[in-house]
Design a protein around this nucleic acid. Structure first.
Lengths: 228, 228
DNA sequence: GACTTAAGTCGCAGAAAGATACTAATTGCG
DNA sequence: CGCAATTAGTATCTTTCTGCGACTTAAGTC
């Protein structure tokens, strides 16, 4: 089990780290989803931020605190992806790793010692961490229709085109503009502001903010389409 | 940290168990979802089946093997629910627990030392295990439209009314018969057999089997309804 | 002023989903 | 036997949802 540079928190007690807590921090960046990696000195030694899990602390709280420490600020959203532990390598040598996915607004600068890498370009991680990235992205995609993840990836005031781009990013496919806006309108999730933003060429876009209004619980119909 | 009767596998080595692997085994039982519990001698000392996680084994494989051991057969479906570790109590005293949800066909008899308890009646578990039950049910509900969970909860040949009852069980609401069948028909997931089953009162029902046919990938539209 | 680009809107055609009502086949009972 | 009760399965109508192309609006560019 090889070891290179590791975060100072790891194995501080001298006891071997049994369980690691790993973080996939995501932000929208143009057409890609960017992930924060710690580049340990050389470019080839990239790793996701991780720490040894303190058995005395609640794990969700530990993840939130670790994210705040690493980012210098609280993420706008965080959730557990899952636990993984098998033959694949982890920088810590931990036999078990619990992965969390955190979301930051687009344009957040990378903290010292870290950098944003587009998710598809992210290679060369230890194999267990490598597998966490698609799992974290899938977790985002799966939960974006029950939590306002896409909205949190934007500044508090945003254009509907920006929002649509985030949805297209996470879903991995293009959406139809009119249909997207109609669905959004019907959900009473945003309210217009008085501001407009002119960005280069075309007509200025109106700015909106996330302001969900209470609605009676809508129950979706049974979907067999993805089964099989 | 109190301890009562525990499975023999736990702490066999004498070292304290750091991570537990817990199992929520589910089966449809009438109008309720039933969960397998180990009733340790007295009725009050119920617990979910759990074991100490062996750091040397891949966790998914360990969960599958533990389920097979406990059930005397392989479950028809199993998936990880997540890791939980906080102040709440666990029978093992473990600081971290990884929960898996397993599915068995309706009517499966409880193994020795275990019994089926309807999920709503399941109280008196250690608090961390208590929280696993709704989380496991939610995991089933969330994944039933991407994995054939409902079909696996039935015998290989089943009636459409039985299938609908399972869906209603997992979704927690009534479905419309005609709409359910129309959607099922359109998904090409089942094929009729030549058998019919007469069960007491009304008209005999035709038996179907799960036989998904390949279809082009259907992409669902953006859903904002559950957001907010 | 004409062209380009992007934002935002309109309306239609087809698909999907809900409801009601209907037919069909069996058991229970007088 | 004949009829009510019960459950399975189907037909049809209506409403809603969704994909899509076409359109208008407002800016920059030449």
């Amino acid at each position: 089990m090889r070891e290179r540079s590791r975060p100072s928190a790891a194995r501080a007690s001298g006891a071997p780290a049994i369980v690691s807590l790993d973080l996939v921090c995501c932000a929208a960046a143009g057409r890609h989803l960017a992930v924060l990696v710690r580049s340990g000195g050389r470019a080839s030694a990239m790793m996701l931020p991780w720490t040894a899990l303190d058995p005395a602390t609640a794990i969700d709280a530990a993840a939130a605190r670790f994210a705040r420490e690493q980012l210098g600020r609280a993420p706008v959203w965080i959730a557990q992806v899952g636990a993984s532990g098998d033959g694949r390598r982890h920088p810590s040598g931990a036999s078990l790793s619990v992965c969390y996915v955190a979301v930051l607004p687009a344009g957040t600068p990378a903290p010292d010692g870290m950098e944003w890498v587009a998710a598809p370009d992210l290679t060369g991680l230890a194999s267990r961490q490598q597998a966490m990235v698609p799992a974290a992205v899938a977790a985002l995609r799966d939960r974006m229709d029950i939590a306002p993840i896409a909205f949190r990836m934007l500044a508090p005031e945003f254009t509907l085109s920006e929002l649509q781009q985030v949805y297209e990013l996470l879903l991995g496919r293009r959406l139809h503009k009119a249909s997207f806006r109609r669905a959004l309108q019907g959900a009473y999730l945003v309210e217009p502001t008085d501001s407009w933003r002119s960005e280069g060429r075309g007509r200025p876009a109106q700015l909106f903010r996330y302001a969900p209004r209470k609605r009676r619980g809508v129950r979706r119909s049974v979907r067999f389409e993805l089964l099989g």
